[in-house]
Design a protein around this nucleic acid. Sequence first.
RNA 1: GGGAGCUUAGCUCAGUUGGUUUAGAGCGUCUGCCUUACAAGCAGAGGGUCGGGGGUUCGACUCCCUCAGCUCCCACCA
Length: 879
Amino acid sequence: MELSAKYNPSEVEDKWYAYWLENKFFHSEPDEREPYTIVIPPPNVTGILHMGHVLNNTLNDVLIRKARMDGKNACWVPGTDHASIATESKVVAKLKDMGLRKEEIGREKFLEYAWEWKEEHGGIILQQLRKLGASCDWDRTRFTMEPALTEAVLATFCHFYRKGWIYRGVRMVNWDPEALTAVSDDEVIHRDTKSHFYHLRYYISDGNGNPTDKYLVIATTRPETIMADAAICVNPNDERHRSLRGKKVLIPLINREIPVIEDDYVEMDFGTGCLKVTPAHDVHDYEIGLRHNLPVIDIIDDHGRLNEKAQILVGQDRFEARKNIVALLQESGNLEKVEEYTSPVGYSERTNAVIEPKLSAQWFLKMSDLAADALDAVESGRIKFIPDKYRNTYRHWMENAHDWCISRQLWWGQRIPAYYLPGGQIVVEETPEKALEAARKIDSTLCASDLKQDEDVLDTWFSSWLWPISVFDPQFPGHPERTPNPDLTYYYPTNDLVTGPDIIFFWVARMIMAGGEFMAEVPFRNVYFTGIVRDKLGRKMSKTLGNSPNPLDLIEKYGADAVRLGMLLCSSAGNDILYDESQIEQGRNFCGKIWNSWRLVSGWTVSPTAKQSDCSRIAVKWFDSLLLRTIAAVEDHYSKFRISDALMAVYKLFWDDYCSWYLELVKPAFGEAVDSATYKATVDFFEKLLKLIHPIMPFITEELWQAMSERKTGETIMYQRTPEIGQVDGTLLDNFDLVREAVNSIRGIRAQKQISPKLSLDIFYEGKLAPELFPVMEKAANVGAFREGNAEGAAVSFLVGTVKFSVPLAGFINEDEEKLKLSEELEHQMKFLAGVRAKLSNEKFVAHAPEAVVALEKKKESDALARIESLRAALSTMN
RNA sequence: GGGAGCUUAGCUCAGUUGGUUUAGAGCGUCUGCCUUACAAGCAGAGGGUCGGGGGUUCGACUCCCUCAGCUCCCACCA
């Protein structure tokens, strides 16, 4: 087949992806083979592909394609996440454009819109993944909020409720006044924010609610909350405030009387040493309040506005109120001074609203037992983290895990299956029918309309933590009495998980918990943490910076294979990726190289009668061994998840060894034909190389694999086996390296001395050199003759290993310089030898070191001796 | 404040119980080549006292101490 002069990815990619789909090559069913399973980290259903996805899914795809070619039953389950907050806020925004508010249209109508939106925009990202070449089993596509998975979520909720691990409690939560929901601690980002420190005077009461002329000063950043104050707190050891003991003070503006209390929590040397305690609006204050039995006065509503309890500024937004109250305090003479102050402020990860600490009733899941098991799974090595350093982070978190607040004040998500009876009792059941049944046991007169279901939905992670289980058998989790279906039995536990370290607690840890709870088995064996994709200046990709390229544009411009290689090039596990388009260019160039090399080989005419030259024969033998050795190295890299090392090994094998050396050695001269033995070997090597490259660059390898020979329909490189590891001729490889180094030196000398590469020279050598490599040497270095012995007259000499080469070059050589170099080398070798011998004569070393290590030292010793010999010999010939 | 990690060539990174690595790769740079597969290419070259200082050792990028700088996580003094 004639190849076009240039590789055109866009022509090729759609064709092969369609072919793969058509033949169901991605589909997997349980069978007798060993399974290899990955579940996709489900992207947000309404998300669009960004560079992080590209990195993550490229890695996933490389692993799954590799496993497939290793003969495993490879299954990669795709799907999407309903992403409560993110999706709901998008729908809310859309409704706003339509002039609607969710509260106006009600829950049911809102969910209709939301589903509509999901149908319209949902799953775009999965289509985009196909462009990247992702070989997911699309027949198994799942969605965390599809009916079956929702059932699983509700069943597990009931399971934990019955177990007594789920409880309802009033807690200080992180309230997002924009999204109108509580968010978990992990979803709050603390940023240093400039604000002010307001010093306020609280006058001491005379006992009858009237101010005296004495006052104390507190410092606060939130003057708008003073109306919710329940006490003023000082440190019991603070001498300055002795006189305040047992006194009461008056809240400015509203003149409510509050006590002065003492608590160790207050730092004496911070601020004025007096702390206003506002239990409703600060976590620590809440805790102080509990200790001192203080009333909780909540003056801020869900939207972040002051309510009636505030008495003043009612209805104003908290920030507006802050501005206004400062003016009032100024007027009333309670404002002593204002300082500039920078303090960390919590922001909502989703909406970027300032988080309001708020007391509310929420559902919690007890973590202690779950966390202990999940910690053990990693500590015991049943789950491996790559890189290992994340184990520390993980341990630290697991040992301090707080109970998980699982309720969210949203509508898009799984609604909590708790039902309130008119008498205040709660029943928790998977369906309204079952709930009614349970309720009637309490009160037989109840009917369906008497039950009020909890308004909240569950945290999204409460469904995605089941992902590795529920994608296979949604009927199983939460029902220990059932038997898992064949899919779950066969595919669980999955093998590898590739994800970002940012969700190690959100998702990874919780999947491990769910796995332990419902399967009594870890959900995966290895977790490969990618880094965060940044731009080349090290900044995070962001819309506002405009530094985030659209992956689809890149695929369009360079081809999916190029994008994949570009992402992988610089991605060692756990390190952030500094994205640079030049890496993708490198990928494109590699495609071009592969393409052109096949254009060369496929263009050769083969002569059945021609005899194989010595040079070609050795070249074939050499590359065969090199290929085998590289395959072993690549396997080793994959087994340690060193994907970029595996990639680089293959890249260099193809480019430097196959193209630059092997093909140059066997390439027939212009107008001549290649002998059939060499041709066959060359084509065979090429095919093996394609197979090695395929997991990384699926499209171009399929295209060329199909092009290089007649293939039957239904055949694909995807299911070819990884080339096998075999016996490597190490001596040949070493000798060849010697030749290569010598040739490079000769080329260097030629370039330096400006001798035309076309001018044939005689090269002399002294020392041991495998004679079978002479033909290679002669061809590669364009040497007229290759002779043992000493060059007569002036020559440039250089050592390669223990062999001394000389290139005769009248008038160009500086013998003193050469001598100096050789003497330095000799000195170093002597020193080194002494070191090795010292170690060998060290009894402790010989007694304790493994045999192989001692053998290595002995080899080093003899190598050094040989080297010293030849150096001395070389030096003596110079005089 | 607590913890973890990082610092090696212009850039991005390897460096595997301390020794043939008197430090390697890819990209970039420079020089010479439009040589009939490929200029998105070929052939060469240059470039690092391995963050600073100290120590252990025959020998340190590797181990220990110390200082400096960077990153991340956790916790948040109102």
